[in-house]
Amino acid sequence: MGWQQQIQAALQTRRAADAWRQRPVIEQNDGRWLQVAGERYLHFSGNDYLGLSQHPALIRAWQQGAAQSGAGAGASGHVSGHSRYHAELEQQLADWLGYSRALLFISGFAANQALIHLLAGKGDRILADKLSHASLLDAASHVPATLRRFTHNQPASLAARLATPCAGNTLVVTEGIFSMDGDSAPLAALAQQTRAADGWLLVDDAHGIGVIGEQGRGSCWQQQVKPELLVVTFGKAFGVSGAAVLCDEETADYLVQFARHLIYSTAMPPAQACALQAALREIQQADAQRQKLQQLIQRFRQGAAALPWSLLPSASAIQPLLVGDNGRALALAQRLRTAGFWLTAIRPPTVPPGTARLRITLTARHEEQDIDRLLEALSDAASE
Rank of each mutant, 00 (worst) to 15 (best):
G2K: 12
A17L: 14
Q22C: 07
N29A: 10
W33P: 00
W33R: 11
Q35A: 03
A37W: 12
F44T: 10
Y49D: 04
Y49I: 05
Y49G: 01
L52P: 07
L58T: 01
I59G: 03
A61C: 14
G65H: 06
A71N: 01
G72W: 04
G74W: 10
G77L: 05
G81C: 12
G81E: 09
H86L: 09
E88M: 09
Q91D: 13
S100I: 10
I106S: 14
F109Y: 11
L119W: 08
L136S: 01
D138V: 13
V143Q: 02
R149M: 14
Q154Y: 00
S157E: 02
L162W: 05
A163T: 00
T174M: 04
T174K: 01
E175M: 13
L190Q: 00
R195H: 15
A196R: 12
G199A: 00
L201V: 05
A206T: 11
G210V: 09
V211N: 03
G213W: 12
W221Y: 04
E228W: 05
V232I: 15
V232D: 04
G235N: 07
L246W: 01
A252G: 12
D253N: 14
L262A: 14
Q272H: 10
A275P: 02
D287N: 05
L307W: 03
S310E: 06
S314F: 13
A315V: 14
A317M: 01
I318T: 01
G324D: 13
T344H: 15
I346T: 14
R347D: 15
P348E: 12
V351T: 11
R357D: 06
I360H: 07
I360V: 15
D370C: 09
L374E: 10
L375N: 01
L378I: 04
D380I: 04
